[in-house]
């Protein structure tokens, strides 16, 4: 079985954000990019499944420009066998569904049996692309998985289902599984890994290679648009309470009760 890992680059989480002139997106010129942290869990899980003999090949899939190649190389250096990057001018302005269409087409073309993706990409925090891929592939999906086992054609996964409830679920492959923190501890690339990665291929695909019609992706096919991007209003300056411990605590409780009215 081949495992497909969706791998996206996102701004490092401590990056300062600047908004572009038409307030639709951020400026990316001096932003430092990283592999989306949840995609690191996805890649690690795929590599562990392969090491356990549950998979024959780990392929990463990225939709993006050549500027994503250093992150893709990082994935190869950690142990992915090869990479597919989808890049076509017609993809510009795609919304989550457009991105999912392109990724689904590429995953399908490779005959991937298990798709591992992040719970969310920590740029737009969209949490949408993987479930859309599952719909387009017509297969099962499981979100926020922190324990995964594969047995033959079936999977068993554990997930936090909200309200503190833990669920154990089972279904058959092919499936799309999204990762949560706790699934594993991602490895870093080693020097030999980095050397080996230099020889591993990154296949760049155009829409035509995926038999995708340009009208199904890009701004023209988008179901949503973004506008009016701005910084959140600054929080009003807070108040530091002064005095000995007993009196600041008394003052705090009185403020929470009388001023903020939260207790």
């Amino acid at each position: 079985m081949k495992i497909g890992v969706c791998l996206k680059q996102v701004p490092a989480t401590d990056t300062r954000i600047r908004v572009n002139a038409d307030a639709t997106a951020i400026l990316t010129d001096d932003v430092k990019f990283e592999i989306n942290p949840y995609d690191e869990y996805a890649l690690e899980e795929a590599l562990q499944l392969k090491a356990a003999g549950k998979a024959t090949e780990v392929i990463t899939f990225t939709l993006g420009g050549a500027d994503a190649d250093p992150r893709i190389r990082d994935g190869l250096a950690r142990g992915a066998d090869r990479a597919v990057r989808i890049d076509d001018p017609a993809l510009a302005g795609s919304d989550a569904l457009g991105v999912a269409r392109a990724l689904a087409a590429a995953l399908k073309a490779e005959g991937v049996g298990l798709v591992l993706a992040g719970r969310q990409a920590v740029d737009g925090d969209g949490s949408a692309v993987p479930a859309m891929i599952a719909e387009l592939l017509g297969c099962a999906q499981v979100s926020w998985v922190d324990k995964l086992t594969i047995e033959g054609e079936s999977f068993t996964a554990q997930r936090a289902a909200g309200g503190g409830v833990r669920e154990v679920v089972t279904g058959s492959l092919p499936a799309v599984v999204t990762t949560d923190k706790g699934l594993n501890t991602p490895r870093y690339a080693t020097l030999p890994g980095i050397m080996k990665a230099k020889a591993k291929p990154i296949a760049v695909k155009k829409l035509a290679d995926l038999a995708l019609d340009a009208s199904s992706v890009g701004a023209g096919a988008a179901l949503v648009s973004f506008s009016n991007m701005g910084q959140p209003a600054a929080r009003p300056a807070g108040r530091i309470l002064k005095g000995d411990s007993a009196s600041v605590v008394a003052e705090l409780v009185s403020l929470l009760h009388n001023e903020a009215k939260v207790i």
């Binding site: 954000i17 920590v122 925090d125 988008a222 973004f226 506008s227 701005g230």
Partner: peptide, 14 residues
């Protein structure tokens, strides 16, 4: 909120 709450954006339905 997007980018960890460092920005806010309008979502328009098309």
């Amino acid at each position: 909120p997007v980018y960890a709450g460092k920005a806010l954006v309008d979502v328009n339905i098309l």
